[in-house]
């Protein structure tokens, strides 16, 4: 049996990824996380002097705090298994990636373990996030200078 034949056989016998189910669950999970975030944001707007725009910072911090608790109690991976992209895309997913790595490497000490490995997974998110922001800003600056669009 050669590789191609086996790859085909493997594809035929392995369980299919339930795409529709995954999408619906991701939608529900992501939506629920965002709903919680909306409530947190509303809380900051109602009880503190934050506007819709300025409330986003404490909201993000609070959501990451929630993600930290869930990760620490071992619940976030269950949510992740259920929700897939729905739990990975919001800021809580980013928080989970950082926190899980930090917990994992605590046994190697705080400097080389936690400090050195905390951004093992999330580091690429930061790098490519910053890079793509730079590219987008560059394109927009050029377009503005050319007079195609305004700021």
């Amino acid at each position: 049996m050669d590789e191609k034949k086996y790859a085909k056989l493997e594809k035929d016998t392995s369980p299919k990824t339930p795409l529709m189910r995954n999408m619906i669950f991701a939608f529900l999970t992501g939506g629920t996380i965002c709903l919680v975030g909306q409530f947190v944001s509303l809380f900051y707007m109602t009880y503190f002097d934050f506007t819709e725009r300025t409330a986003s910072n404490p909201t993000v911090a609070t959501m990451i705090f929630f993600a930290m608790l869930l990760t620490g109690f071992g619940l976030y991976k269950k949510i992740g298994q259920f929700g897939g992209a729905g739990s990975a895309v919001p800021i809580t997913g980013f928080g989970n990636a950082v926190i899980s790595a930090a917990i994992e490497h605590k046994s190697e000490g705080y400097v080389l373990g936690v400090g050195g490995n905390m951004f093992k997974l999330a580091g690429s998110v930061i790098l490519f996030g910053v890079f793509s922001a730079f590219v987008v800003a560059l394109i927009k600056t050029i377009l503005v200078k050319l007079g195609v669009v305004s700021w």
């Binding site: 995954n22 990760t71 976030y76 929700g83 990975a88 899980s100 790595a101 994992e104």
Partner: peptide, 17 residues
């Protein structure tokens, strides 16, 4: 798991395989 895949508490979705 830690060595071969992701940190244990990382919430990635695993396929049925």
């Amino acid at each position: 798991e830690r060595q071969f895949r992701y940190p244990n508490e990382y919430g990635g979705q695993k396929p049925d395989t």
